[in-house]
């Protein structure tokens, strides 16, 4: 399984499609926090306590993320070893974009960000629910669900907000190449490709921008 170069590329692409779909869903839920704290709370509680989400989708997501970056490393190592002696002078920008040549670096920035993101949100959630066994979604003595208030607290620190924004710029760079690359990898290059490229640019800019706007919104409104 996944021995050949093309099998690896296709697997990489499928994990990337899955991540891009997940990103849309994540953005959609986060966006509600800008318009209505109640809706955000309801959705968060649903996602956080629904058995299907917690026990099926969440492990699948974790697998998808881990698979994607491990495969990223595997490909990078193989690709580096395919040129054992480097050029003295190489003019990469003459024939390809910076984004396409630096997927591993934009990916590593996203990985570093995901580490921070896990420490910020995911580990506390797992701790509350699975270790302390508290699935109520409320804090004793406080009114309503805890999710929205917790979100606001996270975006108080300007340093954290700055880091979040920077990471999303790198996500945009990753996707500016990645979105269409994923289609090419599964063999989809046809009369729709031109239009899809424009859509890809829009996706790669708007989705990370959405996350940036949400972070800034909560930073300035709490």
């Amino acid at each position: 399984m996944l021995k050949s170069s093309i099998a690896k590329k296709v697997a990489m692409s499928l994990s990337a499609f899955f991540l891009m779909f997940f990103l849309l869903q994540h953005l959609a839920i986060n966006l509600t926090s800008v318009f209505s704290a109640d809706t955000f709370n309801e959705l968060s509680h649903f996602m956080g306590t629904n058995a299907l989400v917690q026990y099926v989708l969440q492990p699948v997501l974790l697998f998808g993320v881990v698979f994607h970056f491990i495969m990223g490393f595997v490909l990078e190592i193989r690709n580096k070893s395919a040129r054992d002696v480097r050029y003295v002078k190489n003019n990469g920008s003459a024939n390809s974009t910076w984004m396409s040549r630096n997927m591993i670096w934009s990916g590593l920035v996203i990985l570093a960000f995901m580490f921070l993101h896990f420490v910020d949100f995911w580990i506390p959630e797992i701790n509350t629910k699975f270790i302390q066994g508290d699935w109520s979604g409320v804090i004793a003595g406080e009114e309503g669900y805890r999710y929205f208030t917790e979100l606001q607290h996270k975006f108080v620190s300007p340093i954290r907000v700055g880091v979040y924004c920077l990471a999303f710029v790198f996500l945009a760079l990753h996707l500016l190449h990645g979105f269409n690359s994923a289609f090419q990898s599964v063999g989809a290059n046809n009369k729709y490709t031109k239009g899809l490229k424009k859509f890809g640019v829009a996706y790669a800019i708007l989705v990370p921008l959405g996350f940036i706007i949400i972070a800034l919104f909560h930073h300035f409104n709490h």
Partner: peptide, 18 residues
């Protein structure tokens, strides 16, 4: 052909288009 290509030690495609 792909098997032979891999055996020869060529890298993977990142779709850079170079």
């Amino acid at each position: 052909m792909v098997e032979q290509m891999d055996k020869e030690g060529f890298g993977n495609c990142t779709n850079t288009g170079a």
